[in-house]
Nucleic acid binder design. Structure first.
Lengths: 209, 209
DNA sequence: GTCTATATATGGATAGAC
DNA sequence: GTCTATCCATATATAGAC
């Protein structure tokens, strides 16, 4: 790879990062390519040059992180008990949701709009896989006799729904937990607290004592 | 009230209903006043006439349903056990979230944007009240010895988070539950299922046996 | 690859006739 | 209250010079 090619990729990534920030903060329609070009410190024409259009840029912002390969199977296989498998997945999802907060904002807004496009199909597919993984573990746990017979789908949505609320509705969550919104140091404490909470919740609901 | 006044109120309400639909479907920025006026079958100039601006119209769409008085206190007081109080609140919230699906879409999108405006303050305040009511019941239940000592705030967010996922991420939920998205008859079944699920979940987690 | 200048469309809002 | 016509700001996208 030549230095020039490297530079080009950097520029592209730089634009994508800035765009992700802005789209996450204000939504697709509210952000202009002018803003993006200004924030990314590039000429406005470069966005058309690199991506073709604002819409294509938006799609690439979403898709680039959606297609990263999954190492979740490894995480699961390391644990013997189904409960531990589940908790390992939950911890992984907590990490991911907090790390990809911005992208999640974009994704779930797109979901809420509920318009069928190529992109929403891709997102739905991806989120569905997450649910499938959780559901599978719970189902197998039930079959093995380790878990109670519970509503598998709703249990899975409780996990996603609760974590999602924490990463996409910051103002209200900060209000509830009496945290200063500008103080982002709470993230780690929050992740730990969520992790502990799910263990307590499901050790009562799921695990047969 | 004269007939003319009545007609005016109807027109206003009509515009507000149509606007709520469109804002919920596409978001504030993506909807033009031209679209709204067309869909509401009124002249475009009437929106300025009635509301002053697009933004004011948007605010009124949100605020009009946010200021309805609460009968939640009645619902709680009818129940003796804290568990039954909690389940009564949950059922009420399930009803409300499903009934106000469109508005919730708008509200939580506004939350996700996380920009401090007069309106978001109002929304945050309102949502916070919901959390407070749930939290209070759980706290009192713990104090009375009826409930286990749990993470009160996270338990409350699980309730809201799970219900919210069902009403704001329809495509993925339909996918999970293997429901046809266009078939809206599932709503009642879904509400019942959620209600039963929360009872099972919390009878294990909260209630001391 | 990078820039300026511009074509073109669409948006919100309102002046002024009725 | 209702409408048409129009103003003006801002948007995306691109042609063409360098």
């Amino acid at each position: 790879m030549t230095e020039q090619e490297n530079k080009t990729i950097d520029k592209r990534e730089q634009i994508l990062d800035v765009a992700e920030d802005l789209f996450s903060l204000h939504g697709f329609e509210a952000v202009s390519v002018r803003e993006i070009s200004k924030a990314a410190d590039i000429n406005i024409a470069m966005i058309s040059y690199y991506f073709g259009s604002k819409e294509k840029l938006y799609e690439e912002v979403v898709i680039r992180k959606l297609t990263t390969s999954d190492k979740i199977i490894d995480v699961i296989s390391k644990q013997e008990k189904y409960a531990d498998k589940l908790y390992a997945i939950i911890d992984l999802y907590i990490d991911r949701f907090f790390a990809n907060r911005k992208l999640n904002n974009i994704i779930f807004r797109e979901m809420a709009l509920g318009q069928r496009t190529e992109m929403t199909e891709l997102i739905t597919e991806r989120l569905f896989q997450n649910f499938q993984i959780i559901s599978e573990v719970i189902k197998k746990g039930i079959k093995s006799g380790e878990f109670n017979k519970v509503d598998v789908e709703l249990t899975a949505t409780t996990i996603i729904g609760t974590i999602k609320l924490y990463t996409t509705s910051t103002p209200i969550v900060c209000r509830i937990l009496k945290i200063n919104e500008s103080d982002m140091s709470y993230t780690n404490k929050m992740k730990k607290r969520l992790s502990v909470y799910f263990r307590e919740l499901f050790s009562n609901y799921l695990e047969i004592k």
